[in-house]
Amino acid sequence: MFENDALRLLVAVAECGSFTQAATRLNYTQSAVSRRIASLEQQAGGPLFDRLPRGVRLNPAGRSLHRHATEVLERLVRAERELAVLHAGDGGLLHVGAFATANISLVPGALRSLRDTRPGVEVVASEGPTGNLMGRLANGALDLAVVSDYPSGLPPADGVTTTVLCEDELRVALPRGHRLAGSGRFDLRELRDEAWLQSAYGDRPTMLADACARAGFSPRKVVRIAEWTGKFGYVAAGLGVALVPSLAAGAVPETLVLCGLTDPALRRTVHVALPASPLPAALELLRLLRVAAGSPPPA
C-alpha cells in the first residue's frame, strides 16, 4: 500500500520536524515534500502531522505509521546488506544437494574447504536421487547439486546446466579371505558363482545386470540390501559380493577388499548441476569440488 520512498519521507519529516528541513536532507523541493506527504495522508485515510506555527509533529496516526515505517525500513536495510553479502559470495545460505555416495567424502571435503574460504556462507545440505535433485534445482530449492548419469542418464531440467566433474569407476567388494582378494583387477566372469548384494528393487535395469549379461552369465542370486552398511556386513560375512563406486571407497571397512573389474562400462559420470544464474558461493563450491575430485579446471 505504502511506497518505501514515502515511508522514508515520513521518517525524515518526523525527525526534522519540518517539511523544509526534510526537503533539504533528501534533496527535494519543499513543495515536492508537501505533495508527497499529502498523498501519503490520503492513502493513510487522514492527517499524519499536526501543522504547527513553526514546523510539524506526528499526530497519533502518524506515530503509529512511523513505528511501522521504521521497522519496514530497518528490515529493508538488513535485506540489502544480506543480498550484498550473498551476491559477493561471502555469506548467506547455500542449498546443496548430492546423491548418497557423493556425500561420503567428495562433497564433505569440498564443503570443509568452502568453510575455510567462505566462512560466512551457511550451507544447507540435503541428499537424494539425481532425478529429485535436478527437479529441486529447476524449481529454485537448490543452488547446486552433485548428480550422476546412472542408471539412465541425466534427466532434463529447465534452466539447469551441468558440468562433468569426474568418472566414478565401480569396483567389487570382497571379503579379505576371498580367493580373488589379491587379484587387483579381473574379469567379472570370475564371480559368476557368487551371490550379489544389490539395493535396487523392481524390474528396473541395473548396471550389474547389464555387466553380467555382457560377461555371458546371469547373477546366481541377488540379495536385496538397501543400505551400504548392510551390504558391507553381508560381504564381510561371506554372504555375497557387491559393486561399490570409487566414491564410496572411504566408507569400506578394513575387513573388505576393493578390486577393479576389466569391463570398461562399469563406471558412471558425476556432474555438478547449477541453475542458469548461479550464486558466487555456488561457483566457489564448484571450484572446490573440482579440486576434491582431481578434475582439471575448465578451459
Rank of each mutant, 00 (worst) to 15 (best):
A138T: 07
L154C: 09
S152Y: 14
D143M: 04
G131P: 06
L142C: 06
L142P: 10
L154V: 08
G140Q: 12
E127L: 13
Y150E: 13
G120A: 09
T130S: 09
V123Q: 02
G128A: 14
P155L: 09
D149G: 04
A138W: 00
P151W: 03
G128I: 14
G131L: 12
G140R: 11
M134L: 15
M134I: 11
S126A: 09
G131H: 15
G128H: 13
A125D: 13
D149W: 00
G120Q: 11
D149F: 00
L133I: 08
P129K: 10
G153S: 07
T130M: 04
D158Q: 13
G140K: 09
R136Q: 10
T117K: 01
T162Q: 01
G153Q: 07
R118C: 09
A145Y: 04
S126I: 11
S152K: 10
V121I: 06
L133K: 01
S148Y: 02
A141N: 14
G128L: 13
R136W: 05
D158P: 08
D149T: 05
A141W: 11
G153H: 07
A145S: 09
A141E: 15
D158M: 12
T161L: 11
N132V: 14
L144C: 04
G128F: 14
G140P: 06
G120W: 14
T130H: 02
A145L: 10
V146F: 01
V121K: 02
T130C: 04
P129F: 11
T161G: 13
G159K: 04
V147N: 00
V124P: 08
N139I: 08
N132F: 15
P156A: 05
L142T: 05
A138Y: 00
P129H: 15
N132M: 13
N139G: 09
T117A: 07
V147Q: 00
S148G: 06
P129V: 14
G159M: 05
T162N: 04
D143H: 14
S126L: 12
L142E: 03
D149N: 10
L154F: 10
S126T: 15
A125M: 12
